[in-house]
Structures are given as structure tokens and as C-alpha cells.
Design a protein around this nucleic acid. Structure first.
Lengths: 108, 108
DNA sequence: TTTTCATATAAAATTATTATAATATCTTTA
DNA sequence: TAAAGATATTATAATAATTTTATATGAAAA
């Protein structure tokens, strides 16, 4: 009937993270779709054209364009035009850190 | 008109992560909702009853119960019953690692 | 200057998620 | 065993995300 001890916690004050749940979850929402996560993985390797991303991530032309636009509006990626091609790249370094962490946590 | 060099990449082979996009994005989807992220933050501090979580995360009784059930089915949390109270706790240590990384990346 | 290729936009259709309301279950206590 | 408190379930309503289809734009090549 008595209450158990607390679990050992994560070794950091979780208060900061709690205060940022809105922002952080918004970024995680972008990565929470398998194809968008795939797109970002591809972009980690270096900038890519829309067409290259379509092939390597198996996403339709229209869906790709819409995903890219949304991620751009989030400030996560950016692009440059070169002739008829458009090259996208990662614009937020925190994404690189995050995906590095994901790799460490889920691929070891 | 010539193609630019590749960006410097993240210092890890991204292939592993690509292969796991389905799984990883499924876990991130749980954290992609501000209130669920808040719930997990609270649980990092130690196990909590449903009622405690409702108050500290400002989630309705029904929504809380549904969130907890979904996260339990994902294997991310677990519970034990003690009298009329139900205590929830984190069941997947990768969550702790992940939130530690989120703290480092987004709260510094 | 028309055609073609790469990309973007818009709208509609489909599907998924979230929130809400009502009710049920289980435990404890009067 | 009836009442009260804690939690769960179910159904539904409301909203949001995704996919698909069609069309548009803008640059390059024929």
C-alpha cells in the first residue's frame, strides 16, 4: 500500500524540455512520417534535386513537392535553383544532431 | 551549371537509419504530440499515477487513458496497479536516451 | 516558338488523429 | 452492498494529414 520510490531519472532537469514540448513536438512531427524521415536521411548525405529524392525515397512527384514545401516553411530545409533543377539541403543543424542521435539510439 | 560538391555529412553511414525509417518514425510519432511528449517528460522523473499525469499535463481523463493505452501498445510504457491507483512508467530505455538527446539539442 | 522536362500548386478524395461525451469497471470505504 | 473515487472503454464528432488527380509554371532544347 505504500508508494514506491521514484525511478532513477535521466540525469537532467526535465523542466526545460517540458517548457518546450510545443516546439519540440512540432519538429518531431516532421520526422514522424517514414517518407519524410527518409527524405531527411537522404539530405544528410548532401544536397539533392527533387527528382533524385523522388527516386531514392519512392514518393510521388506531387507529394514530394508538398513535403518539401512544408519542411521549408518549418525552416528545416532550404533550396537553390540551378537551371531547371532545384536542389534541396538541410537548413537546421539541429536536424543533423537529432538524426545522429537517432542513429546512435536505434541503429546500434 | 556544374553540380556542387556534396555537403559534409553527419559522420555516420545513414544507410542503417534509412532502413529503419518505418520503425523510428513510428516511435517519433508518439513524441510528436505536445501532450504525449509532456507525459513522457513527466514519466522520466519517475512513475506516476494517471491522476497525477492528468493534472501535471493538463489532459482530460479520457484522452489521458487513450494516450496511455496507445503508448503501452507501442511498448513504450508499462504500468502496475496498486489498489485503486495505476502507476505508469517508462518501459523502453531508448526513450530515456532519446529525450536526453532532445534536451541536449533543443534546450541548450 | 513549340515541345519537353523539372517542379509547383490547387482541389478533391481518402484516411488518420484528436477531442468529447457517455458509460462501464474495479477498488475501497461507509 | 451502496456510494464514491480512479481508471478504462466505446462511440462519435471534429479536425488534420495524406494521397491522388489535374493543371500550371518556368527553364531548356529542339
Amino acid at each position: 500500500m505504500k508508494k514506491q520510490r521514484k525511478n532513477s531519472n535521466a540525469g537532467f532537469s526535465v523542466g526545460d524540455l517540458k517548457r518546450r514540448c510545443e516546439d519540440v513536438s512540432a519538429i518531431l512531427k516532421v520526422l514522424s512520417h517514414p517518407q519524410r524521415l527518409m527524405i531527411l536521411c537522404s539530405l544528410i548525405e548532401g544536397e539533392k534535386t527533387v527528382g533524385e529524392l523522388e527516386k531514392s525515397c519512392d514518393v510521388s512527384q506531387s507529394a514530394m513537392s508538398q513535403f518539401l514545401k512544408a519542411m521549408r516553411l518549418e525552416g528545416l530545409i532550404d533550396f537553390r535553383r540551378e537551371g531547371q533543377f532545384v536542389y534541396y539541403r538541410i537548413a537546421d543543424e539541429r536536424l543533423v544532431e537529432l538524426m545522429t542521435a537517432l542513429h546512435k539510439i536505434f541503429c546500434s
